[in-house]
Design a protein around this nucleic acid. Sequence first.
DNA 1: CTGTTAGCGCGTTCAT
DNA 2: ATGAACGCGCTAACAG
Lengths: 354, 354
Amino acid sequence: MTVTLADVAARARVSPATVSRVLNGNYPVAASTRERVLRAVDDLDYVLNGPASSLAAATSDLIGILVNDIADPFFGIMAGAAQTEIGGPGDGSGRAGGEKLAIVCNTGGTPERELTYLTLLQRQRAAAVVLTGGAVEDPAHQAAVSAKLAKLADAGTRVVLCGRPPLADNTSVVAALAFDNRGGGRRLTEHLLSLGHRDIGYVAGPVERTTTRHRLEGHRDAMKAVGIVGDEDRLTVHGSYDRRSGYDATVELLRREPGITAVVAANDTVALGATAAIRDRGLRIPEDISVAGFDDLPFSVDVVPALTTVRLPLFEAGARAGRLATGKEAPPPGGIATIAAELMVRGSTAPPRG
Amino acid sequence: MTVTLADVAARARVSPATVSRVLNGNYPVAASTRERVLRAVDDLDYVLNGPASSLAAATSDLIGILVNDIADPFFGIMAGAAQTEIGGPGDGSGRAGGEKLAIVCNTGGTPERELTYLTLLQRQRAAAVVLTGGAVEDPAHQAAVSAKLAKLADAGTRVVLCGRPPLADNTSVVAALAFDNRGGGRRLTEHLLSLGHRDIGYVAGPVERTTTRHRLEGHRDAMKAVGIVGDEDRLTVHGSYDRRSGYDATVELLRREPGITAVVAANDTVALGATAAIRDRGLRIPEDISVAGFDDLPFSVDVVPALTTVRLPLFEAGARAGRLATGKEAPPPGGIATIAAELMVRGSTAPPRG
DNA sequence: CTGTTAGCGCGTTCAT
DNA sequence: ATGAACGCGCTAACAG
């Protein structure tokens, strides 16, 4: 019932092998026969059997992109950019030629799902895997991921890290593009300090995530550099990377220390929740309390007042990861590149009152 | 070099078929042998060969979710919700058992890529396909998509539409969950009219998209109902569904008619751009100009003033689509369900001045 | 409950 | 430049 390569061969009056050669375009084929074959393909509306093809060739053209939260533009932007580089423009026929195809896998930030998807991609003999965003720092999980990635690499899968720190053993990774979260976090807090703030609350992301830790370390480095120490734990509240969490954490922060003059949030989305909490309390931004975010997502410039934040070149990084995954671009020296984070000063931060 | 099912069978001292049976869990197997087999699997670190498995079984456990723009939370929320229902919790081992696996495919809103991905999923013998968001109205493309979906359905793939209108021939579709974009658009404009607005500009989405057309029709229906006609085209500017486009279109709108007292945007993201354009012009929201969006994305409640918009239950719809795709939920009568849109009145709309 | 036997549809040697 | 034959790794009958 479903038309196979043999059917096409029969109609084109050639051998199955020839059809295969035409379709893959790897071997020389006479122009006339190629023509006949292609017409037969169209006539019969033939679609290659992917599993059969992958089985015989021991490879596939799938490239998996793992993201922690697909509803978060932070990941969407990177994944979309990567996919733009990978997918190619298509040939307009919808025939799905030889180009690679990117698929996005949403781990929800959980270690189990991350491993499950890696196994799936291993099963599918994926051509490449791109892991985006921060990693969970649980040692057992990191070891499991490293082992899995090593196996993928052994099987010929190109592994790329985007916005994620290198592995302890990074040899199985083609390239690791790490964001300078620590540096960005430090500069952001330095900005606040330079405005005169001393009592700064920090709404952190989930514990045990590299992104959370690095941003927080940057913040604390800056504080320490000017001699503000001892209150770190009291002025830090952890939560997840969403608006709601930002709201709740800020409420808690203001309860613990009503005297804070600035709130630094784990990212822009969290900052949005923080601003809501501050306003609901009847305070103004930035007159009463300054607020800062991280990432510089598209909406950040449009909120009122515009959000001071740290810009991460998400699109560029994702695109580069895509090129690395397809081998279009040479890996950086040592397989590791650090991507700079740029401070964006806007209206949500100002000197403290008095 | 790579370990196969036969290797596992040898080590467990059973036949390959038995190994297959315990892995798929479809046939009865003695507890003791199952135990042996599973240990052998772990010992050898065996990973099923997906292509071989799919080839032999003529099906796969992949479920494709097509989205127009993965960087847009509108799609991210739906895709994430669908995937939550599809993916199952995983078994914690990362072994990737029998459950279905959702993969997200980013079409970028282009017809070619949409067809390319459908072909890919057809190749992979996908278990189901979920198409999210509005469709392009080009007749040729619609015919091509319909034909492709019919073929997928023939091959046993379950096709679900989420946030997309039913096909002309909807028989190959398990279920179409359509948003009431027209009703939502109408109620939104009725709200503005009831506040006293008469000069309302409309920043529309891309032409030739069902979502764009339906929302716009709802708006015009409401205008027509109170006898405001004749100026539709002049007070409508089309653009893409992003912030930048909303900004530019609003600038153009204000150029054409500086007297407008309200701007209705194609969606919340576009509305964000519109507010920026209005503010840059030195006008206040809502005192000088009211602004309204559509979708009620998470950030909309946090912008200042909070955005009046139309709430679409994106998460719920996506989750339902996921259940429909996996067969966990029975399709609605006739395979078509309309999902209600709820007006959310907030601070960005107010009576016009004077 | 378990082993045996055939393919699934294609890519890839080898020939020619 | 093309054809013939083999096998990729697994599942699905069919026995037993």
